[in-house]
């Protein structure tokens, strides 16, 4: 019996479920015992029921699809821009040195503050979303690519060069493969940022769909808060799942890399 309990506590799944259930129960109890007024904040069970209802609501599913579509397109555009740019900056130091002050100034500008400005500039809703995502998610990919190139084994590069390979060839055969794990990490971080920005853009500018739009629409109802919290639960789960997929993919593709760094640690 005790042995079984021990084994159960070794399983991340069992522990995770216990943790989640405990937190939800505590929140439910806080509402039921009157620690948090249910007028001010809905009960956990109410929210979960609402969230379950949303999963069967075709209108909400269409919103999720809209958000997801904008996210995917934005992320693709970001990868298409940031990776080549990162490779350029990483392999031609003078360009990097020249652009650094500009990058260091642009990077800290809060992406949320960019949305009103971008609203003025981009005509289509999807354009706007992609543009905002592009702005905010470029940085992790760009910076990881530049850092990754710096970590490339100089001996390998030198070896290829002595064999008469040109700079592009060296980039393709040595630098890119050894930078790939860094780029992948950057893309994973960018994916999380992109999802946040997709929803934020829908929330802060007009549009015809998306989880953010659902949250705006919920303001019309006296039960709006309940709907909003339920939508937020789905937003969180969506983030969780996409992140999980990226982590899983990274582990599968770059097994050799984790093995190598694991060995050096």
């Amino acid at each position: 019996m005790r042995l079984n309990a021990r084994r159960a506590l070794d399983s991340p799944l069992v522990c995770g479920v216990i943790g989640v259930v405990a937190l939800l129960s505590a929140a439910e109890a806080a509402g039921r015992l009157g620690l948090i007024s249910t007028v001010q904040f809905p009960l956990t069970s109410t929210v979960l029921l609402e969230a379950a209802g949303l999963a069967a609501d075709p209108a909400f599913l269409a919103d999720v699809a809209t958000t997801f579509g904008g996210w995917a397109l934005g992320l693709l555009a970001t990868v298409a821009v940031a990776v080549p740019l990162g490779l350029l900056l990483g392999s031609v130091p003078p360009i990097e040195a020249a652009l650094r002050p500009v990058i260091e100034f642009l990077r800290p500008i809060p992406s949320v503050a960019i949305i009103p400005l971008a609203t003025f500039m981009f005509s289509g809703r999807l354009d706007l979303k992609v543009a905002v995502i592009l702005y905010a998610s470029t940085w992790p990919i760009l910076i990881n690519t530049v850092y990754g190139l710096r970590e490339v084994d100089p001996v390998a590069k030198e070896t290829l060069r002595t064999f008469g390979f040109g700079p592009l060839s060296v980039l393709w055969r040595v630098s890119l493969p050894s930078t790939a794990p860094f780029i992948a990490t950057g893309v994973r971080v960018a994916a999380a940022i992109a999802l946040i920005l997709a929803i934020s853009t829908e929330l802060l500018s007009s549009g015809a769909g998306g989880i953010g739009n659902f949250i705006v629409l919920a303001e019309s109802s006296p039960e709006g808060l309940r709907m909003q919290v339920a939508a937020i639960v789905w937003a969180g789960l969506l983030g969780l799942v996409t992140n999980g997929v990226f982590v899983w993919g990274e582990r599968r593709i770059f097994r050799w890399h984790t093995a190598r760094t694991g060995a050096t640690q």
């Binding site: 949320v112 949250i215 937003a235 983030g239």
Partner: peptide, 20 residues
């Protein structure tokens, strides 16, 4: 192991939606 899912979930919440 107990807290990981909760923390991962908390991190995945878009901050703008937390406002309401």
């Amino acid at each position: 192991r107990f807290l990981d899912p909760i923390i991962q979930f908390g991190r995945a919440l878009p901050p703008v939606t937390l406002l309401p």
